[in-house]
Write a protein that binds this DNA or RNA. Structure first.
Lengths: 264, 264
DNA sequence: GTGGTATGGTGGTCATACCAATTAGTCTTC
DNA sequence: GAAGACTAATTGGTATGACCACCATACCAC
């Protein structure tokens, strides 16, 4: 007796869905603070009560965090379930790092191509902004800021492509990288020449993007990440070498001055 | 430094905890209806606003179900899983489902190409095994088994490509799909013709794989998933149509045989 | 029986006010 | 000049009281 479909129009749930989608599209990035409840309710054309009901739902889902005097923040987490097994894997198997970059090469190459085809003005602008910030940071020798802008650049391209699933996964991988595992990566890249090369490659990607050339954009992105693999291998080899010489030195030092070390 | 942690919780959260506990202790059994919000708020000594905030989180957790004119009921479900952000998004935004398949198209297309190049014998064998299992299941009309073998087939190809990061992510997505969202997907695919088409496409993928032809394999895989998108849209549209005709039919049947209906 | 219609209860939404926590700016004080 | 105390603005949290839309029931007229 299939008569009634029934769709209850719940205004709070609609508001929650809207905010959820914004988070998924990374318009609201993890760590961002939302506008105040009063302003938000006004802008959405609903009462603060209903807005709060929506926020309540999202908070229960763990997407938002609210602190009393401060405000509402988008939860840093977002990496739903994907990251934990991966994190263990990458921690235990250094070789997996190359697979990681290959994976990124695939999805970011496709994203670059897609972005070249139909990215809107604001998306292009945020890509360019990240690129400029990175170039400036590298020029100033601020490598922390450069690394941050680097990540921002790549993320902006994925966002410009507009696939919410891809965005979520890229975001997960990025936050995963930024906690713990990346230190070897970051520490290996204190070479100014390498940074300059990376910036040049970014410039090439951006040019293809702005020209609307999909395939060149993809190729530029993939070349860029392939270069990173090479860089990685090279520094990994050097680290081993360096490690050896350091141990040799340490051994010499210990031999000449056998002191006790603090255990804990 | 065992200072008292101070349980300065929200009043709403405290209320939610209390109700949650009642449900857990089965004082409130599934299916029970709670007292009205006004009465409940009065009895708990809090305002209806705060009480509603508590109910909101409990509803978001799936413990309670509220219907407008009726009242609040304890959910029958009980085991309604806590979902992840991506899962909720897919549930609330149907458009995101296409993004999901597009993402799979990208990584599985690349995996198929890679597998065509250098997959070892055992990997090929497990792909073929999954394919045969699916074909047999479809032939026998066992659609559950077919769906399972279907997933197995795709997973085997990703595994054959050998990128551990890709494998992890594909697996995460698959388990995510297998709980909850997929029912609409599965239920829309009880069409034997569609299943036969899917099997034929799998056969084509497998052939390209065995022939070692990378690009045809990629294309076959992407065509396959594009077909799934089309199928999805088509069934979504047809559901609407079918709904109408069924109602028309039901109406005719009822007219000619006006029997009594069971209420519950 | 049928359909209409009061009626009281229910959740949903709203506007307004006030409380409490946080933050930042300013001022004091040493 | 710097550490600390005070002040003011903004934020989320709670409380009221009201109104609406919905649902179930009982009642009424046909």
């Amino acid at each position: 007796m299939p008569f009634t479909p029934v769709a209850a129009a719940n205004i709070a749930e609609a508001a929650a869905a809207q905010i959820r989608e914004l988070i998924a599209h990374d318009v609201l990035a993890p760590g961002d603070t939302l506008p105040g409840e009063r302003a938000l309710a006004a802008r959405m054309g609903i009462s603060r009560t209903s807005l709060r009901a929506a926020l309540q739902t999202l908070t229960a889902e763990g997407l938002l965090i609210s602190r009393h005097g401060s405000g509402l923040r988008v939860a840093e987490d977002t990496a739903g379930g994907i990251s934990e097994p991966l994190e263990r894997l990458l921690a235990s198997t250094p070789d997996a790092f190359e697979d990681y970059i290959r994976f990124r090469s695939l999805i970011e190459g496709a994203s670059a191509a897609e972005a070249a085809r139909h990215a809107d003005r604001t998306a292009r602008a945020s890509i360019a902004r990240a690129h400029d910030a990175m170039a400036a940071a590298v020029g100033a020798g601020a490598l922390d800021a450069a690394a941050w802008a680097d990540a921002e650049f790549h993320m902006a391209i994925v966002e410009a492509a507009g696939n919410v699933v891809t965005i979520q996964i890229a975001r997960s991988l990025q936050t995963l990288m930024q906690r713990g595992i990346a230190q070897s990566h970051a520490e290996s890249q204190d070479d100014p020449e390498a940074w300059a090369a990376l910036v040049a490659q970014h410039t090439r990607i951006l040019a293809a993007l702005d020209a609307g050339e999909a395939e060149p954009a993809r190729r530029a992105m993939q070349d860029h990440l392939t270069f990173q693999i090479a860089l990685l291998r090279q520094t990994a080899a050097r680290v081993r070498q360096q490690d050896l010489s350091e141990r040799r030195l340490a051994w010499g030092a210990e031999k000449s001055a056998p002191k006790a070390r603090d255990g804990t």
